[in-house]
């Protein structure tokens, strides 16, 4: 036997784990319709949980901000001001609780707690709840750091122009905080897409759950888990490309404003953006 044949045999041996790994199964299940459904469910669950978690995190971060004020007319403003410290306490408690316990445990508890209140909840809703609540605790800290990175002078300038706390936050501080929030947010979404696999334990048929079912049915776990890996890698890689684009878009410090052509023209690639030069009106 010539050495090339020997090397080739060796490579085949490694890649089929001595004949125990059947690549045809991988090929067969890679684009199976149930698997694809699982991928879609994973993506959907990840996106809505991340969005909801971010919103929860935003509110928690605002509650913890020492400058936080609720705009209300007298006499309600005094009442609400008195309610702020329990709100802050609640935020601290919430973050401590959801960062301090494992996501898997939270998932199982949430899934099992509803029957006690004579309510039924399906796996998807339970998974969505658990993932969002958990994510809220982490996003709170991330958003707090983002808000803290914005110079305090910005809020002061906005206030001195007559903006309320809410207006100043929405128009001035949060847009600037977003630039700092994007990298850790990207990280969190990456984790979120993978954490959805935990929902398999509460019998949700997302990607990992589906793969597990097939693996049990055909006694070919290794090949099917490989299929799952391929899909998870695809999702996370696509997201990392999106994240890089987002970071680039928010990091370039513009010098002059460009007038963009309308969105449909940008899509078909018609016009170039033009420099917004001031019109001479005098």
């Amino acid at each position: 036997m010539n050495p090339f044949q020997q090397i080739w045999d060796f490579i085949v041996y490694i890649f089929t784990l001595g004949g125990n790994f059947d690549w045809s199964i991988v090929g067969h299940y890679l684009f199976n319709s149930f698997i694809l459904k699982g991928v879609w469910l994973t993506l959907l669950l990840a996106v809505i949980s991340q969005v909801t978690g971010s919103i929860i995190g935003l509110f928690l971060a605002l509650f913890k901000d020492p400058r936080f004020v609720v705009t209300a007319s007298p006499p309600f403003d005094r009442i609400i001001k008195g309610l702020l410290w329990p709100l802050r306490l609640f935020a601290d408690f919430y973050i401590w609780l959801f960062r301090g316990t494992p996501l898997l445990v939270q998932l199982i508890i949430i899934y099992n707690v509803f029957p006690f209140f004579h309510l039924t909840v399906d796996s998807f809703t339970a998974a969505f709840l658990a993932l969002s609540l958990n994510e809220g605790a982490y996003m709170a800290e991330i958003i707090r750091a983002g808000i803290g990175s914005v110079d305090t002078g910005q809020m002061e300038a906005a206030k001195s122009l007559g903006m309320t706390y809410g207006q100043a936050m929405r128009r001035i501080v949060l847009p600037q905080a977003f630039r700092v929030i994007i990298p850790p947010l990207g990280n969190e979404f990456n984790s979120m897409m993978k954490n959805t696999s935990l929902a398999a334990v509460i019998s949700l048929l997302e990607l990992f759950g589906t793969v597990e079912q097939f693996a049990a049915a055909i006694f070919a776990s290794l090949e099917l888990f490989f299929v799952a890996c391929v899909w998870y890698l695809l999702l996370t890689t696509l997201w990392s490309l999106v994240q890089r684009q987002l970071e680039r878009r928010f990091n370039t410090s513009k010098q002059v404003k460009w007038i963009q052509p309308p969105w449909w023209q940008r899509l078909i690639g018609g016009r170039r953006p033009a420099l917004a030069l001031p019109q001479s009106n005098q």
Binding site: A72, P74, D77, D151, Q154, E156, A157, K159, S160, L161
Partner: peptide, 27 residues
């Protein structure tokens, strides 16, 4: 007592302030 946020904002809108570090909105 301290006034409500809205009233304070109203008063502040009638007073202009210029800061040492400009505090322009960079975005």
């Amino acid at each position: 007592v301290e006034d409500s946020e809205r009233n304070i904002a109203r008063m502040r809108a009638q007073i202009g302030m210029v800061f040492q570090r400009f505090n322009l909105f960079p975005h």
